[in-house]
Design a protein around this nucleic acid. Structure first.
Lengths: 256, 256
DNA sequence: CTTGACCTTGACGCAGCGTCAACCCTGCAT
DNA sequence: ATGCAGGGTTGACGCTGCGTCAAGGTCAAG
């Protein structure tokens, strides 16, 4: 007769595992000797070895007893199914590896490649870092909500950068990045924006907005990013509103 | 401002996950509105999206915050390490698949191929099923304890079967399988065994046993299998002992 | 008698949430 | 005013397969 330690060692498992198998009813609790020790026979060793064999092959413990005394066909069916499960898990992990490889760096985390490219161009023409970070976050949001429109939107935005007026706008903003209190400059920016909106309206660009972002609540959320850049953005929006335009993420004509 | 449901839906995670992230300190608890509802801003959505991106790439939650604001080199180092972990897991699962594929059927579970072959031959010469099952269990035990000696041992056992006396022995046993009470036949069997042991001793076979099974406690364990086949085995051992042999798994001369 | 190596039960911990339970808030239709 | 549906709130257990204390009792040897 064997103690639990001998049993475990013969079967090549830990004592804790044996007790666990008792707990879940996978291995029958044996008789106890007068001192309360469990006392095992050779058959228990064999059963335990077979349990271990299945467990090490990735069979869930809950299914081990079912397999231990299964007819050959049942056994084959079960193993095939378990193998399928294993394949699925492997595929999931491989998908994880693929994603890991494409994470990039912490800065561009969750930012689509097209957006990364656009942000680089923004930086290149002198847009301030705070604004670029803000754009990045906004596009992260957008990409999560409507991933499929990102390529087209980004193509548009990059095209806009070919407009010298747009470049000028970002440079103006860059110049006030340290000091947002100069109302004169804010008004200059508002004028330029108004002009650009006028162009956009003329080219029909503004009408295309609605296709991309049909969700009003979402537009408000995007707006809130801009507002968070600096308190003076509120003033800027005021000035732009005076010139007949409302909104920010989505622009609409409201006045003359 | 967003409720937890809106936040979760924008970020593409479940509400429960958001609360979990709060609990483990991955996402800051936001302000509450007068009714006690959590109230999120756009920045929370972005952070949550980045968390999800990492989590979906298989990054453990415990390491996500570390990665979220890591310098590029730190980030790269961490992802490489996590990728290593993923590869290890994949290899483990693939090992599981390999084992699953070689399980065979429930009957031959944990039985080495050489043993399966030997058992088939035993059955072929007319050994009773109970005896074969018993042999199988004994060899399972042996294979778990000393896997490397199995091929050699099995080669020996198969070679023994070429001896007509051995075949006769198993057939004799087969004939009493239904009725173990015939002492006459038991004595016949004991005579035959004694004769075989004599042959084995003469050929030096008995001396080689000790190399294979040096563990006395283990030998007793193996013996206990034989005893479990039928009570009459005890009688048989008695008869064999009268003829000058002790032991079962390991045989030793004890008399004339 | 002590020591060390075993054995006993009981319970928490892990990873990442899913899933009740039991109760409160809010807005809309009746 | 009321009822109902569809939000929200905390709290707690469940899953997998054991590892790892904790706080003891037992056994063989020196």
């Amino acid at each position: 007769m064997l103690t639990i330690g001998q049993l475990a060692s013969y079967a090549g498992v830990t004592i804790r595992a044996v007790r666990h198998y008792h707990q879940i009813g996978l291995l029958r609790e044996p008789e106890r000797d007068p001192s309360g020790y469990r006392s095992y026979d050779a058959a228990a060793v064999v059963r335990l070895i077979r349990i271990r064999t299945l467990a090490e092959a990735g069979v869930p413990l809950a299914r081990v007893s079912e397999l231990l005394d299964a007819a050959p066909e049942t056994f084959a069916a079960a193993t095939t199914e378990i193998d399928q499960r294993l394949r699925t898990q492997i595929r999931e992990l491989q998908e994880h590896r693929r994603r890991i490889a494409r994470l990039g760096c912490s800065d561009s985390l969750a930012v689509p490649a097209e957006v990364v490219d656009y942000l680089d161009r923004l930086r290149a023409i002198g847009a301030p870092a705070a604004l670029v970070d803000n754009e990045r976050d906004a596009w992260i949001l957008m990409a999560a909500r409507w991933p499929q429109v990102i390529p087209e939107l980004m193509a548009d935005k990059v095209a806009q950068l070919a407009n010298p007026k747009v470049v000028e706008l970002y440079q103006l903003i860059g110049r006030i990045a340290d000091d947002w209190t100069d109302d004169e400059r804010l008004r200059e920016i508002a004028d330029l924006m108004s002009e650009l909106f006028e162009q956009a309206a003329a080219s029909g660009e503004l009408d295309r907005q609605d296709e991309f972002i049909p969700d009003t609540a979402f537009v408000h959320l995007m707006d809130s990013f801009a507002n968070a850049v600096h308190p003076a953005v509120a003033r800027l929006r005021e000035l732009v509103a005076e010139r007949g335009w409302t909104g920010w993420t989505r622009i609409e004509r409201s006045g003359p």
